[in-house]
Simulated assay, not measured.
Amino acid sequence: MPRTPLFGFAPGAEVARAHEVLDLAVRADRAGLDLFSLSDHPYHGARLDAYATLGVVLGATTRITGLANVSNLPSRPAPLLARTLTSLSALSGGRIVLGAGAGGFWDDITRLGPPRLGPAAAVRAFEEALTLVRALSGGGGPVTFEGEHHRVTDLEPADVPTPPIWTGSLGPKSLAVTGRLADGWIPGHASDWLSDRFREGRRLIDAAALAAGRSPADVVTVHNLPGRITARPLDRVRDATGRWTGGSVAQWTEELTGAVLEHGSAGFIHFNTDDTPLPVALGRWAEEIAPAVREAVAEH
């Protein structure tokens, strides 16, 4: 039987909209959404810091889970990120997911101070960071880790379960890390279930999971899903490249139900792409589309 799909919302993270972002988080929580998603670009002064914002959001809500989509690991030392995650988990009753990426905007990242890494080194640092986050949660004895990019000595793990780890992996090597170590995958460039990027990425993740003695089902797929939710059906719901662009509530419901039942999608995080006011888009997503898809999936 298919698992109940997760539904999330991404409202943007501009400092100038701080109060609106918090208000939308509270609305999303009350409307029954599962995830509240924020981007993590700490080199931009006009953006809210993802983890500071998630701390406030989790304190103002009771049900929804927070996600930095995805955490900029090169700019966040892994041991301190592990402490941030376990603290947020303890304070919120486990309502945090680690979204993790190897780093994609190196010109910006280096302005913060971290050294520029080449693609292969960035993936090695990425794998070490995920390993440390796991080691520094869940209790147990002191952790000493001597890696190429991360080193800790006799650090006590937090006695808090490891948060779920979802990656935004793109390349073959980082996709293999996802298969070995992660709990979920957010396909890059908002690739949906009909894209070649999704199919090839899933193939590499599944192969790496099996080689590590895991089941591919241990790594769920959660899609970032830009699109507009219209009051009336559209003649076309995909663009010339085949990418999903949106439609009416009924069109979204049909498409997402198929994504779950036919392609194994485990969740969807919506980014609104037209000029519909965000509270209206959030209402359509949380109060109409999400319940309809959950109901349709439950019937199978």
Rank of each mutant, 00 (worst) to 15 (best):
G118T: 09
W106L: 08
R228F: 13
P142R: 10
F9R: 01
T253A: 10
L38V: 06
N69L: 14
P77F: 07
D235I: 06
E299M: 15
P216V: 02
T144A: 03
D29E: 07
G171E: 07
R30Y: 07
L22G: 10
H263R: 13
V21T: 10
R199D: 12
L54W: 12
V152E: 05
T53E: 01
P226K: 01
P5W: 08
G283R: 14
V26T: 14
P164Y: 03
G32H: 05
R83P: 03
R27V: 09
G140K: 03
H300T: 09
V21A: 02
H150L: 15
D196L: 14
V123A: 04
A292P: 05
F9A: 04
A240Q: 10
D239T: 11
P233H: 02
D274W: 01
N72Y: 08
S265M: 14
A125R: 15
I186N: 09
F36A: 00
L73A: 08
M1S: 12
H189Y: 14
V160W: 06
D29T: 08
M1C: 08
G45L: 14
G184D: 00
R30M: 07
A298N: 09
L33M: 04
E255H: 08
A292T: 08
A129F: 09
R17Y: 02
P226T: 12
R202E: 05
N272A: 15
D183K: 06
A10P: 05
V237T: 15
A18H: 13
A100L: 08
F36Q: 00
L38E: 03
V15E: 03
E295S: 13
R27Q: 15
R199E: 12
R284N: 02
H300S: 08
M1Q: 11
V21Q: 00
A208N: 01
F105R: 11
A25H: 03
F268D: 00
L35G: 00
W244H: 05
P164L: 12
V222C: 00
V70L: 11
W185A: 01
V26L: 12
P161D: 06
A211V: 13
R238T: 05
P291Y: 06
A266P: 05
E148C: 07
P77N: 01
P79H: 06
P77M: 03
T162P: 11
E156Y: 12
P77Y: 04
R294P: 07
S75R: 04
G184K: 01
A10D: 05
R243N: 13
R203M: 10
E295R: 12
A290G: 05
A28W: 06
A182N: 02
R202V: 10
I165Q: 04
L48S: 11
R202Q: 08
A68P: 13
V123L: 04
L80W: 14
F268E: 00
